[in-house]
Design a protein around this nucleic acid. Structure first.
Length: 228
DNA sequence: GACCAGGCACATC
DNA sequence: GATGTGCATGGT
């Protein structure tokens, strides 16, 4: 059986980006009206379809709770949980949202501007210490809310690029991230678009049929220079 | 009615 | 360190 990781057409990570961008065009991520909305969305979308997240965001926005982190922080956890119910896992996510707003209040006086000025490496470390913020949520916040040049890895990235021979499916989050970072210019706009394009590709082709010949990277073996 | 969706924490071995 | 499990709703 011929699979899509066949070695007939080797291309590098940067070239795959160009190919996807030409095929799909700009994706306009992240869908959010403010930095805080993007952060809330990043937590709510954990293992959840975005259409469900939109309902929860709309409920919060309609009541003015997304106008400032402090406002959301003052909301009772039970009520917050009830408002975000459509996004699923509403009890854990309500706690996670309040963990973030609590962290912001305690360490940055509730100021997203102050947080934005923090050194990226330090900020990443601190965000990962917040219960409920793991690597993908953390990096989504850094990239999409604060335009930091951090590559976001998700289940789609692993599925697609392992299928095309770039790494083994069991490769860790950090190792996958290092491969992309080492093979692309450190450009937040490009990281933004690339991750969004991977999600688009996954939804468009690679979930239902890895053998789909209309896929823009069908039959391509993706290669990378070694991570030092 | 099964399966999946832009994860994460925690228990257990 | 690897593996298993709970968390939950809504679309296909």
């Amino acid at each position: 059986m011929r699979n899509s990781s066949g070695n007939s057409r080797p291309e590098n990570i940067n070239k795959i980006y160009s190919r996807l961008y030409k095929f799909y065009g700009p994706q306009g991520w992240w869908p959010g009206r403010s930095r805080f909305e993007i952060i809330v969305g990043a937590i709510l979308t954990q293992n959840t379809a975005w259409t469900n997240v939109e309902k929860a965001i709309a409920a919060l926005r309609g009541r003015g709770y997304l106008s400032s982190p402090a406002k959301l922080h003052r909301l009772r956890t039970e009520e917050l949980s009830s408002l975000i119910r459509p996004a699923g896992y509403h009890n854990v996510k309500a706690s996670r949202l309040k963990n973030f707003t609590g962290f912001l209040a305690a360490d940055y006086g509730g100021s997203l501007d102050k947080l934005a000025k923090t050194d990226t490496v330090l900020l990443r470390k601190k965000l990962l210490e917040v219960n409920g913020i793991g690597p993908e949520t953390c990096d989504s916040i850094l990239l999409y809310a604060f335009a930091k040049p951090v590559f976001v890895v998700d289940a789609y990235t692993k599925r697609i690029f392992s299928r095309h021979g770039l790494f083994d499916e069991t490769t860790s989050y950090e190792d996958v991230q290092d491969i992309f970072t080492a093979n692309l210019p450190s450009d937040a706009a490009k990281f933004n678009e690339y991750h969004a394009l991977i999600v688009k590709l996954a939804k468009d082709h690679c979930r239902k049929s890895p053998e789909c010949k209309n896929c823009p990277i069908y039959g391509v073996k993706i290669v990378a220079k070694k991570v030092s």
